[in-house]
């Protein structure tokens, strides 16, 4: 009897964790968006900012262009399903980023190209369990423990602190299969959009990298503009 109660309780918690993940996915995955953002990299020698404009359709198509500074301006990145190409105007070359190059730091930040390639919904990629409750800055959080459903996922384990009201992952810890903590990310500010709550300012920290981490600031998000299909082609990289 006790076993049955414990088992039902465990199933109930799993269902609750899955339901939370589903709400998070709904909150974050929008059909279409044009985002203007800045990445501020706090390196060993100081900070530098790179400004981007991104056109995104769902989880599998995105086109990002660097707007500033001068050295980065005109660099473009195209993601189509599992493929990633980058274009550099100085060399006039389109290069496919694959294999170990995906693990390279993106523009010297705490994010890798592999991080940019993350695809699919959390619920599709991870099996979730409730790991307790916590408070961050006075706000109530659920703590979820996520385990990857297959070995192809970049981070085999994630621990997420989910805001109970906003359904945003306010804090995340990303682990390797060995259990080693690789990265930590935190949403420092969020804002309400027509589609729900959206991160405004995020902090990424690659634990293995020296420096003060990387901030990502969203300046604007447009959900309503139509994005032409031609945007997501290799030809668009040279335009």
């Amino acid at each position: 009897m006790l076993f049955m109660i414990a088992s039902l309780s465990a199933h109930g918690e799993e269902d609750q964790a899955a339901a939370i993940l589903q709400r998070m996915d709904q909150n974050q995955n929008v059909e279409r968006q044009i985002v203007v953002s800045s990445m501020i990299i706090h390196g060993l020698r100081g900070s530098r900012e790179i400004r981007y404009k991104s056109w995104i359709i769902g989880q599998e198509q995105s086109f990002t262009e660097s707007l500033a500074p001068r050295r980065e301006k005109g660099n473009k990145m195209l993601k189509l399903k599992q493929n990633l190409w980058i274009f550099n105007p100085r060399t006039d070359r389109i290069l496919k980023i694959a294999g170990h190059m995906l693990r390279q730091s993106m523009a010297g930040s705490d994010l890798s190209y592999e991080d940019m390639m993350e695809k699919g919904k959390l619920l599709d990629n991870y099996h979730a369990e409730m790991a307790g409750e916590d408070q961050i800055d006075g706000r109530e959080m659920w703590v979820l423990d996520l385990k990857a459903r297959n070995s192809g996922i970049a981070y085999q384990r994630r621990k997420i602190w989910v805001d109970k009201q906003l359904y945003l992952g306010i804090r995340e810890e990303l682990y390797a299969a060995s259990g080693k903590l690789l990265k930590r990310l935190e949403i420092l500010e969020s804002f309400k959009t027509s589609r729900g709550w959206y991160p405004k300012r995020m902090q990424f920290k690659d634990i293995l990298k020296k420096g003060g981490g990387t901030e990502w600031i969203i300046h604007s998000v447009d959900f309503d503009t139509t994005i032409p299909k031609s945007k997501f082609s290799k030809a668009a990289l040279r335009r």
């Binding site: 990299i41 390196g43 020698r45 530098r48 980065e72 980058i86 550099n88 100085r90 060399t91 006039d92 070359r93 290069l95 190059m101 390279q104 730091s105 993106m106 523009a107 010297g108 930040s109």
Partner: peptide, 14 residues
């Protein structure tokens, strides 16, 4: 050439 610059950013040069 594909490498990393002094800021750790990926660079390309012909």
């Amino acid at each position: 050439y594909i490498g990393s610059d002094m800021n750790g950013s990926m660079v390309f040069y012909n």
